[in-house]
């Protein structure tokens, strides 16, 4: 099991990049530890800004820095960043088109037993509905590294959500297919298309293996780029399958499932089933316990696929 969390990879990429590029600035809202950015703060103290527990300020200050040529990476728990400072993300970053990268850490139900105040099950819906905001949810540490190296090269707003704990690798070191804003196809099969993002990609891939043993062939797509959504890959996968399943660590409305359903419904109608968290405060537990409870596992997804194909 991999021991490196996605957030740690982000710090490592930024620490390296900031050695060469003095315009890179990391900002935290008393969240440097949670964001794994302590190493950045120690290595580049002059390129680190602490704003205290003030998420609105975090985003507005980042926008002001960006307007004056800096390249801010603002990291705060996804729950607060995506809702407490939502208007700052909308007006100061997206609408004003400032080069701010918003890093939502400990996303989804990462904070487990801390409760709904600390869960970000609405951030895909919130962020995707802002014009000029891009939204990325990488699946593992290896993809996270590629994504951030790519984000370093552009000057547009983006929101990136990562989880708190290390997750199993989806890809292999030295063999990480990655194209910016293009979903990664993990496997191809003519029976069912499973489209997932973030921590749900691994269980989706596991589901495909389970299904394969039963003679069911699945296409599995890592849709790390939620916005701009890779519609082409969705249409291709859905067109070549009998049904579509989406899987996400998000509320059932306005997330990956809703967006995929819009594309499939309008361009290649198929049955689409959305697997997500419930429209309720999630049950208390670790991420694994929560996912198990709601069937967001390899077995759960495989079972749903079998049900779908049986109908």
């Amino acid at each position: 099991m991999n021991k490196i969390a996605n957030r740690q990879v982000i710090c490592d990429v930024l620490v390296e990049a900031a050695k060469e590029d003095k315009e890179i600035v990391a900002l935290c809202s008393d969240s440097r530890g949670s964001a794994s950015l302590t190493k950045f703060a120690e290595t580049h103290p002059k390129q680190f800004v602490e704003v205290g527990i003030a998420e609105q300020n975090l985003v507005s200050i980042s926008a002001g820095l960006a307007k004056c040529g800096k390249k801010p990476y603002a990291a705060s728990p996804a729950s607060f960043l995506s809702t407490r400072s939502y208007e700052q993300c909308k007006v100061d970053v997206a609408y004003s088109n400032t080069n701010v990268k918003l890093i939502g850490i400990s996303g989804g139900v990462s904070y487990g037993a801390l409760g709904m105040s600390h869960h970000s099950a609405q951030d895909i819906a919130a962020m995707c509905s802002i014009p000029n905001m891009r939204v990325y949810i990488p699946s593992d540490r290896l993809q996270t590294e590629h994504l951030f190296k790519s984000l370093l090269k552009d000057e547009k707003p983006a929101y990136i959500r990562v989880g708190r704990n290390p997750v199993e690798d989806v890809y292999e070191e030295g063999n990480v297919p990655f194209e910016m804003d293009k979903a990664t196809v993990l496997s191809e099969g003519a029976d069912i298309a499973i489209i997932a993002c973030g921590e749900m990609v691994k269980p989706a891939a596991d589901a495909a293996k389970i299904l394969e043993t039963k003679g069911i062939h699945a296409t599995v797509i890592d849709m790390y780029c939620i916005k701009p959504l890779d519609k082409e890959t969705i249409v291709k996968a859905a067109s070549g399958a009998k049904a579509v399943i989406t899987v996400e660590e998000h509320a059932p409305f306005g997330g990956l499932g809703s967006m995929v359903s819009q594309v499939v419904g309008s361009q290649c109608p198929r049955k689409v089933v959305n697997m997500a968290l419930p429209d309720a405060p999630v049950i208390t537990g670790t991420s694994k316990e929560v996912f198990d409870h709601y069937g967001l596992t390899g077995e759960g997804i495989a079972k749903k696929a079998e049900e779908l194909l049986r109908i």
């Binding site: 800004v49 200050i61 926008a63 820095l65 960006a66 208007e87 007006v91 609408y95």
Partner: peptide, 19 residues
């Protein structure tokens, strides 16, 4: 900078002055 919703200008200017 775009504004309209109130209470945004000063924090944005903090970023500008900090730069």
């Amino acid at each position: 900078m775009n504004s309209g919703s109130l209470g945004h200008g000063l924090p944005v200017c903090v970023g500008m002055a900090l730069a």
